[in-house]
């Protein structure tokens, strides 16, 4: 049953990542909705652990790519190598050929390397020497990024940000969780010992279940109002793209599934909204202390 599976997964992850129930739920709904995840936070708050834990519990193959400024696209995608025995070029697959990739500190790579991920993220395929290769299914990228005010970063362009379904922040753990971290077992050991809660078939079933969560026309009205607001209110440099609208709906559906809702409710939309749209919008007038997502939610009546 989908719900039991979800409970299993959440329990398994929360055993490792303590005190982060909401970000974990968001991360899971992002993957269930088939989207890529961007985690933005300071080093050392558990970004890598989260990614690794997700991979393990979902039973996915896992690769970590550490991005650096001297990295080239071939380092990710792989290269075509001439085989002397067969007198043919054969592909030496790069780390991208994995179900779940942790692209660590993605904003330390140059734009050229960053954009190598673009095709992979959107089409689930890559092209080397005019040859197109399919990537394994399911295919997820969890990218982490250091806050952009740190040195040695190339900020991701809007086009690339738009391809991440969600951006989440982890933040410092609270006192209780921190205590648990300090007293408890080594996290790396915990991750290592994790067993898959589901297999990839079950994951496929879950993903199908997400797209089957009922969406009423009233809810579509609500989402459309949100999209129109970002485009017409004049607060933002650009409004949300249609892709962002689809992302919002999928994420809300996944959230509804995790929350045991029979249908998507406005509350589900509101729950994922900050993480789905915040990285896609730029305020025209930057007011650092105002929470513009809350303002946006408060401005829109539920139909």
């Amino acid at each position: 049953m989908p719900h039991n599976d979800i409970e299993h997964i959440l329990n398994a992850i929360n055993a490792v990542i303590v005190g982060k129930k909401t970000p974990v739920k968001l991360a899971l709904s992002c993957l269930l909705a088939g989207g890529h995840l961007l985690i933005e936070d300071l080093p050392g708050v558990g970004k890598t652990t989260l990614a690794h834990t997700l991979a393990k519990t979902l039973g996915l193959s896992f690769q970590r790519i550490q991005f650096t400024s001297d990295m080239l696209p071939a380092d990710i995608l792989g290269v075509a190598i001439f085989n002397r025995d067969t007198h043919e070029f054969s592909l030496h697959k790069g780390p991208i050929f994995t179900q779940l990739i942790l692209a660590d500190e993605v904003n330390r790579a140059t734009p050229r390397t960053q954009s190598a991920l673009l095709e992979a993220m959107e089409e689930h395929q890559i092209t080397i020497e005019n040859q197109t290769y399919d990537l394994p299914e399911p295919f997820f990228i969890i990218a982490t990024q250091n806050p952009s005010n740190q040195i040695g970063t190339f900020p991701l362009p809007e086009s690339q940000l738009d391809r991440f379904l969600m951006r989440i922040e982890l933040g410092y753990p609270d006192a209780q969780a921190e205590r648990e971290l300090l007293l408890g077992q080594d996290r790396r050991q915990l991750v290592h010992d994790l067993t898959a809660a589901i297999n990839s078939d079950q994951l496929k079933v879950l993903q199908d279940a997400v797209s089957k969560v009922h969406v009423s026309s009233a809810l579509i009205d609500y989402i459309q109002t949100i999209l129109a607001y970002t485009r017409d209110s004049g607060q933002f440099v650009y409004g949300l793209s249609p892709r962002a609208g689809i992302a919002l709906l999928r994420a809300a559906q996944a959230w509804a599934l995790i929350a045991h809702h029979q249908q998507v409710l406005p509350e589900d939309v509101q729950a994922v909204l900050p993480n789905v749209i915040a990285h896609r919008l730029h305020l025209r007038v930057d007011n650092a202390n105002g929470d513009f997502i809350t303002d946006l939610i408060n401005a829109i009546a539920i139909p």
Binding site: L265, P266, E267, Q270, I297, A301, I302
Partner: peptide
């Protein structure tokens, strides 16, 4: 009920 509040909330 604030206009932006969903039924569950």
């Amino acid at each position: 009920r604030p206009k932006q509040q969903g039924p569950l909330d």
